[in-house]
Design a protein around this nucleic acid. Structure first.
Length: 900
RNA sequence: GCGGAGGUUGCCGAGCUAGGUCAAAGGCGGCAGACUCAAGAUCUGCUUCCGUAGGGGUUCGCCGGUUCGAAUCCGGCCCUCCGCACCA
């Protein structure tokens, strides 16, 4: 574990020197941020990729002259951390084991249980992992200014969030209304993805059903059937109930309805003031007739054991014409009822019967007809109310008409049967006083759109994506009744939801370190108004302190680059952009967003429940920070998918070791370099450096490092192939190479930097300006000419199987060049008429500018040594008959033994 | 369905926004060679087909079109992946 000690040593030195403490100065600033990690457990390689790329870019910007600020905080608000504590309190085995494993990554075995015990307090969980993640980040060599770090539940930061929400309130962006949520009625609280069994792998969503009320022909109650397809109402032939289920009579919205016992619980949660009246015998239902709303028709109710009393209301209406399910039941129960058809697709009647045989299962056939009719179906013209309408429109009209007739209610149901992790049913409940941020305001959207136009997006297509998301976003629930976080200032019974409290937080980094010793009771809204805006009121705070805070905000703010994953587009990033647009001036708006591709592991998705999440700490312990960083930089481009696997990292390890030995040898080479070739090598290195800079500016991190790692190693190998000392060549460029490599391999490069006898840290040095002179370009051209010649010679060698002892190269004479040039320009008045045909055939493959003789005399050695043959260069003296050389394409003749 | 991305030579993956210099970068895998007692690592060459001279043929999801010329532009079709929310 040599590398660990070395890496740790440099990390400590950086910390001691405070070299990543960023202060405003005259240079151009660059603020780079990543989403703060959520501290519910250790980070995995997926996080590590994003953060590592951010650090590489931060270091690159620093190297190219920017004053860089790379801050980091911790996200502790929200419900998941609380529910972890809850589960630990009630000894949930799965959670206990998971956290045992997590803790043991960081601690000695004998401390695990003690720490696990302390996790019964959610704050301990949050703080524990926050402090561990700090260590992980340090161990990866990130150039973070840790003085500015804070946590989303810090009282000072809470003040900032309160300020944000009071401003949003004043701007009219906060509203209150009713809202469906996933809910556990046994626990009495809303549940998130994290609380639901398999919630992360099999998402549960909320579906909106239409509950249609069928009035009993004699009496004052209704049978309540739920459907996703209210447009099929006029094709209803009967109703279904389950023979074994219990049905209850309820009072809902001053109407008496019958639903299953299971459904009654959902209704109690969704309709205020609803109550259960009494049990109803199934016989009583099946003996009655029920009226189809909006028609004069009555239908009967049949018992059907396939009807699930737990699904929706436990009562279903039957449309055998358009539902394969119902048709199937009809057939199975041998009911003699004629289906009704009211929907047409492709100009003719759509019938469930045509689907039933075409699919492997009833379920698939039903899904097929549903999709087909929903997207392409049109109601027949003689259908009342909705005749001639598209199914999509008809559905909305029916919902309206049913509501008007007091025969329809909206009922929410989960998209699949779901249970909480401790086995309690998950239902949908309605929050009646839910707080929202209302993002639907058009002026606000327009303003955000304007800023988005000016930003940089990487990859670019995400900009269009963001425009669409801005169009689409409406109200967003922004507070919850439980979890960690800041109480909503407008109503302290609510806690601000964790995505909504994390939209403008990068602003807080700019001054968080300067206000740490101000008691939070002294922080008021005008404090932040002053720092972020133009308020000039007399302030009670220490002048120097707040002035410094203001100065730093004004210097740094406007995040130059935010690096995050695509999954944040439609939630975090859109909130980030819109909240900035609402609260800050144009100059403080975000300037760039980069989306990092997904990370998968050995071909499959990483998920906590699958147990294939490789922890970042494991990676660092096993491979070291530099190797991991090199892996991230070289193995996949930032915006594409990265498949973490061991084979690949072994390969990268080879590269890492080559770099080591090259730099070792380059520190003090034994031999002297050959002037001509070391000169050429230096020129090529300059070219690679320029390409590197260009690619990094385009955020093509992989391409950039392929250029400065693989290409340079290739050049060095070429040198040693012609018998020269590559270490002497490394020595010529070692300083710049170390600087450039240090963005990815900071520890290793600091080490070489000090071995070179350089003072200070390579992490803080700048790359000098580099440009190619005309002479440089000339030499590169010579070299490339030699290379293409070599390729041609090899091709000939392969075909003829001649192993040459002498290679005869015949190049164009000056006179001949002129004549050839004439032909290419259409002037056939040349002395060597024989050349005309061949010249025309080869146009486009010639190079008139290169001095071939000069190129060959300078670098001919390359050919001689690699092919181990004599090189014989002469100028063409023939008459143009037979084979002739072209400019840039000399004649090549091989002399020697034939092989095989 | 809507919106987005994409289908490239054994695999992964560039190029395709500025059409020719693209048989098409790079990596992996495979083959051969060098080094080595051997293996591994490393380095070198080859890796669509034909060819005893750097050439030619056929390729970039499918079908058409524009053009002297298309992987690259246009139209249509087929297929794959991602998002469609209140969850961090």
């Amino acid at each position: 574990m040599m590398f660990m000690d070395e890496e740790k040593r440099w990390q400590e030195e950086w910390e001691r020197g405070g070299i990543f403490h960023s202060e405003p100065d005259k240079r151009k600033k660059f603020l780079i941020t990543v989403p703060w990690p959520y501290t519910s457990g250790p980070l995995h390689v997926g996080h590590g990729r994003t953060y590592t790329l951010a650090d590489i870019i931060a270091r690159y910007k620093r190297m190219t002259g920017y004053n860089v600020l790379f801050p980091m905080g911790f996200h502790e608000s929200g419900t998941p951390i609380g529910s972890i504590s809850e589960k630990i309190k009630r000894n949930d085995e799965k959670t206990l084991n998971m956290y045992r494993k997590y803790i043991s990554e960081y601690e000695n075995i004998d401390r695990v249980e003690e720490i696990l015990e302390s996790f019964k307090d959610p704050l301990t969980v949050a703080n524990y992992f926050a402090s561990k993640i700090v260590n992980d980040f340090k161990a990866l060599g990130y150039s973070i200014d840790w003085r500015r770090t804070f946590r989303s539940i810090d009282p000072l930061y809470s003040k900032f969030v309160e300020w944000q929400f009071r401003k949003l309130g004043k701007l009219g962006h906060l509203t209150q209304g009713s809202h469906p949520v996933l809910f556990s009625s046994e626990d009495g609280n809303a549940v998130g993805e994290d609380d639901i069994e398999d919630g992360d792998t099999d998402k549960v969503s909320i579906e909106k059903f239409t509950m249609v009320l069928f009035k009993v022909s004699e009496g004052d109650y209704n049978l309540a059937a739920c459907s996703l397809r209210p447009e099929t109402l006029f094709a209803i032939t009967n109703l279904w109930i389950n023979p074994e289920a219990t049905y209850l009579l309820m009072n809902v919205e001053n109407t008496k309805i019958i639903v299953s016992e299971q459904a009654s619980k959902k209704i109690l949660n969704q309709f205020a003031g609803s109550k259960v009246l009494c049990n109803i015998n199934n016989d009583e239902i099946t003996q009655k007739q029920f009226q189809v709303p909006l028609t004069n028709r009555t239908v009967k109710v049949y018992e059907n054991s396939d009807i699930d009393p737990e699904q929706a209301s436990g009562v279903v209406y039957s449309v055998p014409g358009h539902s394969v399910m119902d048709l199937h039941y009809m057939n199975r129960l041998a009911l003699n009822i004629d289906p009704l058809f009211i929907i047409e697709t492709n100009g003719s009647e759509s019938k469930a019967s045509t689907y039933i045989s075409q699919f492997p299962s009833i379920k698939e056939a039903n899904a097929a007809i549903y999709r087909k009719e929903f997207y392409e179906g049109i109601l027949k013209s003689d259908v009342p109310l909705i005749g001639g309408r598209k199914v999509k429109e008809a559905r909305e009209i029916m919902n309206e008409k049913l509501a008007q007739a007091k025969s329809g209610l909206t009922f929410y149901e989960t998209s699949r049967k779901a249970r909480t992790r401790d086995g309690k049913p998950v239902i949908v409940s309605i929050m009646h006083d839910q707080w929202f941020i209302d993002y639907s305001e058009l002026i606000w959207k327009e303003r955000t759109r304007k800023y988005v136009e000016k930003m940089s997006f990487h990859p670019e297509f995400y900009r269009k994506n963001m425009f669409d998301i801005i169009d689409w976003i409406e109200e967003r629930a922004c507070a919850r009744k439980r979890g960690l976080g800041t109480p909503l200032p407008q109503d302290r019974a609510w806690v601000i939801e964790s995505l909504s409290d994390s939209t403008i937080y990068p602003a807080f980094y700019t001054f968080s370190h300067l206000i740490k010793d101000i008691p939070d009771s002294e922080i008021t809204d005008s404090f932040f108004d002053y720092i972020t805006g133009n308020e000039t009121d007399v302030l009670p705070w220490k002048k120097g302190q707040i002035e410094n805070a203001k100065r730093e905000f004004e210097y740094w703010y406007g995040v130059d680059q935010r690096i995050t994953s695509a999954s944040h587009m439609s939630n975090h990033l859109v909130f980030y952009l819109m909240n900035h647009a609402a609260l800050f001036n144009e100059s403080y708006q975000p300037k760039g967003i980069s989306i990092v591709g997904m990370v998968i592991s050995n071909g499959s998705k990483i998920s906590k429940s699958k147990g294939n999440a490789i922890s970042l700490l494991d990676v660092v312990n096993q491979y070291g920070a530099d190797l991991f960083r090199l892996y991230v930089a070289l193995v996949a481009e930032m915006d594409s998918l990265l498949d973490w696997n061991e084979t690949e990292i072994t390969n990268i390890k080879g590269v890492y070791e080559s770099l080591h030995s090259l730099l070792d040898g380059g520190l003090a080479p034994v031999n002297k370099g050959d002037g001509r070739y070391s000169d050429l090598f230096k020129i090529k290195f300059k070219k690679h450096t320029l390409n590197f800079l260009h690619k990094m500016d385009e955020l093509q991190v992989r391409n950039a490092y392929v250029e400065i790692v693989y290409e340079v190693i290739k050049d060095l190998n070429e040198l040693s192939n012609i018998g020269l000392d590559k270490y002497a060549a490394v020595n010529e460029i070692i300083e710049d190479w170390i600087k450039i490599l240090s963005c990815v391999l900071p520890h290793m490069c600091e080490n070489y930097w000090s071995k070179l006898g350089k003072s200070g840290f390579v992490s803080k040095t700048q790359l000098d300006r580099i440009e190619l002179t005309e002479n440089d370009i000339l030499k590169i051209n010579y070299y490339e000419y030699l290379n293409s010649l070599l390729t041609d010679i090899r091709a000939i060698k392969n075909i003829t199987r001649i192993n040459p002892s002498t290679i005869r190269i015949t190049i164009c004479s000056g006179e001949m060049k002129k004549e050839i040039k004439m032909v290419t320009e259409g002037d056939m008045n040349v002395s060597m008429k024989n050349i005309i045909g061949i010249v025309r055939k080869n146009r486009g493959k010639m190079d008139f500018d290169i001095d071939e003789f000069e190129a060959l005399s300078l670098y001919g050695q390359i050919i001689k040594t690699t092919l181990n043959a004599e090189l014989n260069v002469e100028i063409y003296k023939g008459d143009g008959k037979g084979k002739i050389p072209m400019p840039g394409r000399p004649l090549i003749e091989l002399e020697g033994e034939r092989i095989g």
